[in-house]
Design a protein around this nucleic acid. Structure first.
Lengths: 338, 338
DNA sequence: TTGTAAGCGTTATCAT
DNA sequence: ATGATAACGCTTACAA
């Protein structure tokens, strides 16, 4: 037996298709008698009727589907963003389909070919500005919500931002208070606004009498470790002042930095303090646990979906940046005099 | 201006809608002249025509969409499975929509309500057998591919399996060869076939003259650490033989076990050997790096999608279990005599 | 209060 | 080689 249609339900209940549609859509107030309404619902249940979404979408012209564009899922941050977005979407009868932007944050190539669904809107997380163009070029009038991206770039329907600068200022201040003066910034190699803003906040917070050196690495533990080993190797001689604190753009980078330090025989946190960013599961997996900045990743996804829903209903959507929290753990300590 | 339809393209090109459809579907061999075919394609490009998928789905009765059911995305294993499935799907013009089964592996409640798409098939990963019923109950005739699940349970259209028993046997043998005799099995608290088979292989491989104790914990680092601390606390006195090797169902559990050991003042791997399972990024994040069993997670997703595609084309699909690989790192060593 | 009918954009079957 | 036409299952005026 094939799946029952609304016509089958109508026939079985002895009413018209229109009545079935009205009842099941819940908009029958004063248009269908209470008695027939319940009767229709019962027969629909009995037949196990579920509406054909393709037909509904065709008729309605909307699919109640959002596309979430993220660089990768193996990064726990984006997995959490998806989880949050999907949760809010489900509560509103929406679906979320993922698109993994191929080259990390490079221009997204035809997201519609792979996410084979008609879309009501797009949510993009931590994308480079030029990647935005790649998406927007396809469909100029599709609502676009940007998460964790440059709000001054324009072009999007709404922005969900995070108080990243506050977070970076907080860790930096924490390290300064502990007496650190020589900093190494282990930055992400991908050129993205979300990382630029971290660098800016770090540089701004460091006052006079401090030194700052920047090293970039791809967002993997091994890459970060290698980059860090090279960077610290420059400081083996007593000529230049070795940094006593390493500020990382990300927990993954921080873990790599810790590995490198250990390989070079440095004790953590006595010889070197290391800080992360994001506070993912990784941060408490390692020893010592990472001092880091907690980002409410699920909340980012939730607000992204809320913003999209608002835009779709014609409302503008704005909200203050999501607050972050400094989490002090064992990977930071005052520098030991030597 | 609204999006152009095939009718608009037909009108602009001066041909009928049917011709447009044939040309764009690529099935016009000997039915449409070469000249008009290229003309149609050009006008379609010029107008920026893209077919309405809702209409196509309605007409064709299939959506070219698969539902992938996983317990959670924050577990890197499932993120990799998704990535593999999505990659293969994209190559065949298919989409993959995710459904996060709420309670880890509990019965999935109406996956269709949240993944609001008509589906061509379902791929379920590492689900408990009763969760299978929850899904299948909705649509009896929908193709179902089970990943990493009991192939003898029946009911699915195809199974993709992993040589987990081989992997567990390999780690166990590795530990036995190193001289370990007293084992602790840190098992997953979720009751799933994928973990049952690990336990069975472990018990089977341990010969006479060995002891085995089992402790269960939820799949988080903190839970694993707590469970492990309780378990090892029982062995503080010299009365009972403290285990020298902890075999874990998962890298996450293993990391938790390492933390617990360190808190109790045990040195790794001298005082205690710990092994993981999966070989996720976590395994090399910690110090010492985990001896573990590498599972080709992306490959699992890829084969799952391939199996579904085969089933949809009416072919049966079978393949040998995916091979796994023992990766020996620093978390295991011969037990030190005391 | 309920039924009739048109149309959403596509593909497939028939004529021409 | 091409065009007219009928579905696919649903929603929503409008008619009764």
């Amino acid at each position: 037996m094939t799946r029952p249609t609304s016509r089958d339900v109508a026939h079985a209940a002895g009413v018209s298709q229109a009545t079935v549609s009205l009842v099941l859509a819940g908009k029958w107030r004063g248009r269908v008698s209470e008695r027939t309404a319940t009767h229709v619902r019962e027969t629909a249940d009995a037949l196990g009727y579920r509406p054909n979404l393709a037909a509904r979408n065709l008729r309605l012209g909307s699919t109640r589907t959002a596309l979430l564009v993220v660089p990768a899922l193996t990064n726990e941050f984006f997995a959490r963003v998806y989880t949050g977005a999907a949760k809010v979407a489900a509560g509103h009868g929406f679906g979320v389909v993922l698109y993994l932007s191929p080259d990390g944050t490079g221009p997204a190539r035809d997201p519609f070919a792979s996410a084979r669904t008609a879309l009501d809107g797009i949510i993009a997380s931590s994308m480079a500005t030029d990647a935005l163009e790649g998406i927007r070029g396809e469909d100029q009038d599709l609502p676009l919500v940007m998460l964790d991206s440059d709000p001054t770039a324009g072009g999007a329907s709404a922005y969900v931002n995070i108080a990243l600068a506050d977070g970076m200022t907080a860790v930096t201040t924490h390290l300064l208070d502990q007496g650190h003066r020589h900093f190494l910034h282990l930055a992400s190699a991908v050129d993205s606004w979300t990382f630029d803003i971290r660098a800016a906040a770090l540089a701004r917070t460091l006052g006079p009498g401090t030194t700052l050196r920047t090293v970039r690495a791809p967002l993997t533990i091994t890459d970060a470790c290698a980059a860090m080993e090279r960077a610290l190797a420059d400081h083996t001689g007593p000529a230049t002042a070795r940094p006593t604190a390493v500020v990382c753009d990300d927990d993954i980078l921080a873990v790599g930095a810790c590995k490198a330090a250990r390989r070079l025989g440095l004790a953590l946190p006595e010889d070197l303090s290391v800080t992360g960013f994001d506070d993912m599961a990784l941060a408490t997996a390692v020893e010592p646990e990472l001092t880091t900045v907690r980002i409410p990743a699920e909340r980012v996804g939730e607000d992204g979906m809320r913003a999209l829903l608002a835009v779709l209903e014609g409302h503008a959507w704005t909200a203050p940046p999501l607050p972050v929290e400094l989490v002090v753990r064992g990977s930071t300590a005052p520098p030991t005099a030597r």
